[in-house]
Every structure is written in C-alpha cells, then in structure tokens.
C-alpha cells in the first residue's frame, strides 16, 4: 500500500505524470458532459420525459452523492494539476522574450487557464443557480416548482431560468469558452496519453473540434430555444 502511495506521488511529481493526471481527470469530466447533455436534451421531448429523468436521478437518494463527489474530486484534481503545471511553466522562463512570436500554437491552446477558470466560475454559478441557490424561488415552500407527486418540476425551472436573458447570455459565453477549452483539450488528450501517431493526428484534431462543437452546440440549444420561444 505504501509502495503504491509512493508510486503515485512520484508519478504526480513528474511533468508527464501530472499531464497524464490532467488528461485522465478530463476524460472523466468529458464522460460526465456527454451524460449531462443527453439528459438535458430530453427537454425537447417535453416536460414529462425531462421530469421523469430528473425524478429517477433524485430517486438515487444518498447514492446520487457517489457521482457528485466523484465529479468534485475530478474537478479538484484537474485544477490542482493544471495550476501546478502552469506555475512551473512560468518559473521555467523567468525572463520573457522582448520580441515574442507564435508560429503554430492555436488561440484556444493559449487560453487554457483562462477558459478553464471561466468554466470553474460557471460551475459555481450553475450549482448556485439550479442546485443550491434560490434566485428564481425554485426552492420556496409554496410548491410553485413542484409536481403533483412532490418532485421538482425541472422543465419549468429551466424555462423560467433561461427566460432571463442575461442569465442565458452568461451561459452562452461560458459555453463558448468551454468549446475553446475542449477544441484544444480533446485532441491534446490523445497526445498526452500517447495515442497520437503521424497518421492519426489529423483525425484527433478533427475529433476534438467536432466534440467541442457537439457539446457546446447541444447545451447552447436549450437557452437559445427558450429565448426564441420554442420551449415554454
């Protein structure tokens, strides 16, 4: 046990180890994003489908905390390792170039810390908004957002929340930066985990872009549909 613990510490201490931990934690977060998107898109199947899905999740009771804590752990590890890497990177070049040039690096690759921190701010806001906070009175006692059987009317929550334009705007901005994060991040992941070869590199770059567009377009479709009056 102690040997394994030491091996993990040693792995984390190395540059490549930290990068792989970033990539593996990201893999878990990407799986969550896919699942979360699939669930949310049920809104287009109408209130009953979405509310039934939400009720099923809440039916897990304490076991809902397993994925929740898992996600929290993944986000924590991802942030710890990336900020650690970023600090080391800054220290590796104390004297900047006076004439600085960029030859190949994409804009999204140069914004990873910024896009990541925006995602973090968004996650906090998002949880306060729907899960914990009471901005729209979702959790008031009067039962305005409850169904007949007492479970939450998630459909109504979403339509009301995204009907507030500045709220939707913040979601769309955050989603754009998530897209930027993923368009570099996903293709990068294959490189970090050692799968990229000369033949597969263009494929992975394409996969990264498509994934980013699919995830962000998918999530963005909900506030856009509400604002356009398509969902009500």
């Amino acid at each position: 046990m102690k040997a394994l613990y030491l091996a993990v510490i040693r792995f984390y201490a190395s540059s490549i180890g930290k990068k792989m931990i970033v990539a593996l934690s990201a893999l878990g977060l990407l799986a969550f994003l896919l699942g979360h998107l699939a669930g949310n898109l049920l809104i287009f199947s109408g209130p009953d489908a979405l509310n039934a899905y939400a009720a099923k999740l809440h039916g897990l009771g304490v076991f809902l905390w397993v994925p929740r804590l898992g996600l929290l752990g993944l986000v924590g590890v991802h942030i710890m390792a990336t900020l650690h890497l970023a600090a080391q990177n800054r220290a590796a070049r104390p004297q900047e170039y006076v004439a600085d040039a960029t030859l190949r690096a994409t804009r999204s690759s140069r914004m990873m810390v910024l896009s990541g921190l925006t995602i973090l701010a968004f996650i906090i806001y998002h949880l306060l908004h729907f899960t914990v906070g009471n901005l729209h009175g979702f959790h008031d006692d009067n039962g305005a957002y409850r169904l007949a059987d007492g479970s939450m009317n998630v459909y109504k929550m979403m339509v009301v929340a995204f009907g507030v334009w500045f709220n939707s705007l913040f979601y769309l901005v955050a989603l754009t930066l998530l897209g930027s994060h993923l368009s570099h991040g996903v293709s990068s992941l294959f490189q970090t985990l050692g799968f990229t070869t000369p033949r597969t590199r263009p494929l992975y770059t394409l996969v990264g872009r498509l994934f980013a567009v699919a995830i962000c377009g998918g999530f963005a479709s909900i506030p856009v549909a509400v604002l356009a009056g398509f969902l009500k």
């Binding site: 540059s15 990177n89 490189q191 070869t197």
Partner: peptide, 28 residues
C-alpha cells in the same frame, strides 16, 4: 524545464524537423 502543453512551437522551429508525434511516443 517547463511542461509540454501540446502547442508544438518546438516542431515548428526544429532545424532537424523532429515531429511532435515523437512526444506522444515519449509519453507512452
């Protein structure tokens, strides 16, 4: 030295045109 962020500025200037795929192999 710093940590790779998979931006491949290195391969763009390398006088011997070592490709960035070598880094994926190193990671593996």
């Amino acid at each position: 030295f710093g940590n790779c962020t998979n931006q491949y500025e290195c391969a763009a200037v390398c006088p011997k045109e070592i490709p960035a795929d070598a880094i994926a192999r190193l990671n593996r």
